[in-house]
Each structure stands twice: as structure tokens, then as C-alpha cells.
Design a protein around this nucleic acid. Structure first.
Lengths: 252, 252
DNA sequence: AAAACTTATATGCAATAAGCATATATCTAG
DNA sequence: CTAGATATATGCTTATTGCATATAAGTTTT
């Protein structure tokens, strides 16, 4: 460990961070889930100015004694009622850990009219059954990026379109582009599935995220060859031939 | 644009950011270049505590009126004497724009003994001839990640090994892993080459970043088929057969 | 009970890509 | 002029992907 001299200790003791003007720092979390073949985000309604009554990403100021990861997990818990972030909290019998990853840090000086606020944005992938009852203050919205565009469109269940507070629609758009790209080299699609799933459900996750149709036979052969699928030996019955159920074989 | 009511304006006028304790925010830039088949980083020597006389990444506090991207570009200019970030400054006859991208935000509460400091880290890819004279205060160091490990090793030109200030070695390691991965889906290797280059030089860039040998014939066929190489019609003479010179065909 | 329908699973073939061995070309050095 | 160094080219094998076609296994309808 770095050894400190008396001179250095005196320097540290006299250091005054207030001598410099500092921006505020928040953590904002894009909570993504998948329902009925739609990518959705959990948003909360702002109760104070600015953007009073606008829907927004759950967020909060970073506390002085917590890491950024801890702040994001706290926001998930306090603002969205979601607990059990993978690799963060006490390892109990977690049914389905939440996937949480840093997205990007948004720091345009004018992004918040109150004061200078820098936002360290995260995204969380949450299996739909993990999300509890919605209410007046928080709800799930469907997301869509029109062909050839980059801006995301946000709809409620009655297909009414919304603008979000601050630059939260832009943050949301970055998150969607991120998971589209990441799906190409990291098996994050599994984070949106229940513990046991069918190949059709896995393909639906991929098609929903990528917003395009995939070839059924190629997809299943590729997935079966990947070694990531662990057969459970059980079947799920529907209208047609029963489908085999799999688990995601996580590498240790 | 979001229209503001009188009530909201009053709210904003009375807002006091100092009511909340705020961390300091810095921008730190990993400056990467490639010389003699080695990946190198430009570091500067700290002139004050803590970590006095330790080598460190160029960095600085984020000013209240600048964006994070502007802060990173300012750090490049003021601390490393590098100008001409792609897409940022006035478009003059830039010989070789510098590639600058946000890396990750490091926010462990104890990472700086002075006070709580959150670092928005960037990485810059700089063609070697762009880097001016080194001196007592800044120098280039060779980087290497041993097989099967994740921590980066930092050497000077006499193969002396160094530890860096703060968590800057960790930040450096994240940057190397980032460009290794990104090389797979974005042609960032070209950012480390001069305007005109040979296929051998391009392969050397890839091999140095990935820290492994690539098959010469497959590599060149793949690159020639990619459509990214624009033949200049000129040759570069060496000891053997003259090599054809290419330019990077940037998509508009 | 049988037929129709739905959905899942399996397989062969063609096209494309990647790895590798081998050959030829074109220069400079001796 | 030959040897050496380096670049460029090509054929073959293996792997992957897309697609068409076939078979399997249920549920629903008649």
C-alpha cells in the first residue's frame, strides 16, 4: 500500500475540496424488461420541479460514502422496489439476480436546469415476473426505435406517446443501442428470461432486442451448439408440439 | 422545448445545490499509441501530493461550464500537448484527428485520499508521429498484460516496471481490454496508423492490441474484402517486395 | 377415434468465411 | 546474377449460416 509521509499527511489534512466548484452527481438506471414480445422500461413519475409530473428514469444523487455500483443498486431498491443485483448483495437463495451494468456518463452542462448535474447512467435487465405491481407513480412503457432512426419512442399500454424528463429519452436510446450491440458478443439475452425457458422464448428475446426476424432453424442450431443451454429434461406444453425447457449454463 | 411555469421558475431560483454534499469530478485520459510493435501510454509525473512524483494518467477537474467531452479534450491539450480531437474542434486541415471516447466512470469512495473524487475516464488513440517530444514531466510507457491475467504491467524504455498513482493502472487495464474487444466490431485500429499504411502495418496494429499472432494470408484477404481499404497506387520499398500503400476509407 | 391444425425439432444443401499450406512476384543486398 | 527478404496470390479444408424440406408431438375440431 502507498506509504504516506508527514508532509503528505499535512497536505491531505489541509485539502479543501470546497475551494473548487463541483457539479452534482447522480446515478440514473434504465430498467429494461421484456413482456409479450415488447421491450419495456420501468419509469417513475416526477413529484417535484423541474419536469413535474413527467415520467423519468429512476435516479438519485450519489451519496458520499457509497460506490457508484452501490448507488445504482440503492436506486433500484428505493425507487423501483427491485432487489437482488447480481454479485452485490448477500448471496442468499436468489431466484433471479438482476443484471446491472454501467452504461455511459452524461455530462452536458445544461442537462438539468437546477444546477450542473452529471449522471452516471446504468442499465438493468430484469425478468418480467420480478417486477411487482405498478401504480400511479411507476409504470412500464413500451420502447421502439423506428427503422433508420436513432431516437427511441416511448408508449404506454394505450399506445399514447410520451416525452421524458431531462435527457432521459436519450439515455434510454443509448441503453437500447448498447444491448443490441452487446448481444453480439455477450449472452445477455438470458438475463431477460426466467430460469427455465424454451428456444422460442430465447429467440423472441433476441428478435425483440434486435427488432428483426431471425431464422428459426439456424438460430436453434447455433444456440444448441453454443454449449450455453442446459437441458432440464422437462417440456412446456402449448398448442403444438411440446417444447423442451432449458437453463442458461453460466460459466463459473 | 420544455415550457416553464412561474411556480417552476421560483423553485429553480431557490434551488441550493450546496445543501447536498458533492464529490469532486475529474476527467482522466488514457492516451494510447503504438511504436515498434508495442502498445504505449503517455503518462505524466505528478508534481504534488498525494502520490508525489508517481507517474499518472493526464487528468483534471471538470469545469462547471464545459461538457465532459470538452474537459477530456482540454486535458489532452493542456497536459499532453495534443490537439485536434475528431469531431470537436474547428474543422481545419486536420492531418490526423485524434480518436477520443469515453471509457468508464470510476467512483470508488476511497480511490483518492484527499476527498471523494469520481473520475470519468476516456481513452484516446493517437498515431505515434502526432506525439511530440517527451521530457521530465511526461513520457511514453510500454504496456503488457501477461497471459491469463487482467492486470497491466507498465515499463519504461529500460524495461523498469512502474506502479501508477491512484487506481490509474486499473483504468489503463480497462482501456486495453476495451480496445481489444472493440477491435472485433469497429475499425479502431486505423486510428493508430498514419494516413497511408501497408497491410503489414495494419496487421501489426491488430497483433499488438490483441497480443497474439494473426494468419497473414487470411488477414489480408479479409481486410481487402472488407471495402475499408482504399489503394493509393503508391508503394513502400523495404528489403523485400515493395508493399502497396492504402488509406482507410471512412464511411460518411 | 380420426383428421386437421399448430408448433417444435431435425437434416441436407449451398454459399460464405476463416485457417493454412503452397506458390509466385518483386524488390534489395551481396 | 544469385541469395535473401518480404509481399501478394490461390487452392483446399473446415466451420458457420441461411434456407428449404421433412418429421415429430402435441391440442383442437369434427
Amino acid at each position: 500500500m502507498h506509504q504516506r509521509s508527514h508532509e503528505e499527511q499535512r497536505y491531505l489534512d489541509s485539502y479543501n475540496a470546497s475551494a473548487f466548484d463541483r457539479p452534482s452527481v447522480t446515478v440514473d438506471v434504465v430498467i429494461l424488461t421484456l413482456r409479450d414480445g415488447h421491450l419495456e422500461a420501468l419509469l417513475i413519475k416526477r413529484k417535484e420541479h423541474p419536469f413535474l409530473n413527467y415520467w423519468s428514469l429512476p435516479g438519485g444523487f450519489v451519496q458520499m460514502q457509497e460506490s457508484l455500483d452501490e448507488a445504482a443498486a440503492r436506486v433500484l431498491r428505493q425507487k423501483a422496489g427491485l432487489e437482488g443485483v447480481a454479485g452485490m448483495e448477500r448471496e442468499g437463495p436468489l431466484r433471479h439476480p438482476i443484471y446491472l451494468e454501467q452504461l455511459y456518463t452524461f455530462g452536458h452542462p445544461e442537462r438539468d436546469p437546477r444546477t450542473r448535474v452529471i449522471s452516471v447512467a446504468y442499465y438493468a435487465l430484469v425478468e418480467a415476473s420480478h417486477i411487482r405491481e405498478m401504480g400511479e407513480e411507476k409504470a412500464l412503457f413500451r420502447l421502439r426505435i423506428p427503422e433508420g432512426e436513432s431516437a427511441v419512442e416511448i408508449f404506454d399500454s394505450k399506445f399514447k406517446k410520451y416525452s421524458l424528463a431531462f435527457d432521459h429519452a436519450e439515455i434510454l436510446g443509448v441503453a437500447i443501442q448498447r444491448i443490441r450491440g452487446k448481444l453480439g458478443y455477450t449472452p445477455i439475452g438470458f438475463e431477460l428470461l426466467p430460469e427455465r425457458f424454451t428456444l422460442r422464448q430465447l429467440q423472441t428475446v433476441h428478435e425483440t432486442i434486435l427488432q428483426k426476424r431471425l431464422n428459426k432453424d439456424s438460430f436453434r442450431r447455433k444456440m444448441l451448439a453454443s454449449g450455453m443451454l442446459e437441458p432440464t429434461g422437462e417440456l412446456e406444453r402449448g398448442l403444438g408440439r411440446p417444447a423442451e425447457l432449458y437453463r442458461f449454463r453460466r460459466e463459473l
